[in-house]
C-alpha cells in the first residue's frame, strides 16, 4: 500500500512536484503517466528515498519513508529508469548483492536468486560481468534484483527502456505474476498501450500536478469523448496552453 499526502518537491524556485496526493491499495497495479519533465521520476525518487521531499508525507506498507526509511525500504523493490549496475560484478553477483542488502539469509537467497533467474530467463548470460550487457539485459537484471526479496510493493520507472519485444513480453508477464501474487505496483511509463493493458488505475501528472486519476474502466468513458484512443486523451490533457 502506498500513500502520498500533499507531496511537494522544489529545486530552488522550480517546483517539480506540487502537492501530490495519491493512495494505492495493496494488490493494485497503478500506472503513472505524464509528459517529459512532468514530475514522474521526481515523485518516484522521493518514494524510494533518493530525494528528500520539500513537504508532504509518503507512507509505504504502513511505514513513513522519512521517519522509518529502513522499514519502508525493506517492503518494496525499485526498478530505476536507467538500470545502472556495478560494472565489475556479474548479473548473478548483483542479484546476490541486492538480496544481501535486504538482509536475506543465504539459503533463502540462493533459492530466490534461482527463482528470479528462471522468471526473467537470464540463465544463459547471468554469469558474465554486467559491463558486457546490453541495456535490455541490464534492465532484466534490475527487475530480477527487485523481485528477489518478494516485495509487497514494486516501484518502477519506465520499465520498457531498451527492451526488445521478447524481453518486453518477459517483463510484462513477470509484472502480471507479481500483481497476481498480491504485490502493489506503481509504474511510471510513456507507453500508453502498456498502461492500458496492465494497470487497474491510471494517474496523469502534468506540470508537477496530478490532472487525471481514474480506473481503467472509467478511462474507456473518457476515451469515447475523443476518438476512442488513450493517446488522444493523453494529448488533450497534457497539451500546452499555447497549442
Amino acid at each position: 500500500m502506498i500513500e502520498l499526502t500533499n507531496l511537494t518537491k522544489a529545486f530552488g524556485s522550480f517546483v517539480a512536484v506540487n502537492d501530490v496526493s495519491l493512495s494505492i491499495p495493496s494488490g493494485e497495479f497503478f500506472g503513472f503517466l505524464g509528459p517529459n519533465g512532468a514530475g514522474k521520476t521526481t515523485t518516484i525518487k522521493m518514494m524510494t528515498g533518493l530525494f528528500t521531499p520539500t513537504s508532504g508525507r509518503i507512507v509505504i506498507n504502513g511505514f513513513d519513508v522519512e521517519k522509518q526509511p529502513q522499514e519502508a525500504k525493506a517492503t518494496f523493490g525499485y526498478i530505476p529508469d536507467h538500470p545502472y549496475l556495478y560494472d565489475k560484478l556479474t548479473g548473478r553477483e548483483f542479484i546476490y548483492y541486492m538480496g544481501g542488502l535486504y538482509r536475506m539469509e543465504k539459503n533463502d537467497l540462493k533459492e530466490n536468486v534461482d527463482r528470479v533467474i528462471d522468471l526473467l530467463e537470464l540463465a544463459s548470460w547471468i554469469d558474465k560481468k554486467t559491463e558486457d550487457y546490453s541495456q535490455g539485459m541490464r534492465q532484466r537484471v534490475t527487475f530480477a534484483s527487485a523481485f528477489v526479496h518478494k516485495p509487497k510493493t514494486i516501484i518502477i520507472d519506465e520499465p520498457m527502456v531498451g527492451l526488445d519485444p521478447r524481453s518486453a513480453r518477459i517483463v510484462k508477464d513477470s509484472l502480471k505474476k507479481q500483481a497476481h501474487e498480491g504485490a502493489s505496483i506503481f509504474m511510471s511509463t510513456h507507453i500508453l498501450e502498456m498502461a492500458e493493458e496492465l494497470c487497474d488505475r491510471i494517474g496523469i501528472i502534468n506540470k508537477s500536478k496530478i490532472i487525471f486519476l481514474d480506473t481503467r474502466e472509467n478511462l474507456h468513458l473518457h476515451k469515447t469523448k475523443y476518438d476512442g484512443n488513450l493517446e488522444s486523451v493523453f494529448l488533450e490533457l497534457t497539451k500546452e496552453e499555447n497549442e
Binding site: 529502513q70 525500504k73 525499485y78 530505476p80 545502472y84 535486504y102
Partner: peptide
C-alpha cells in the same frame, strides 16, 4: 541508487 533505495 542501490544503497539509497534499499534497507541499508
Amino acid at each position: 541508487w542501490t544503497i539509497r533505495s534499499t534497507p541499508i
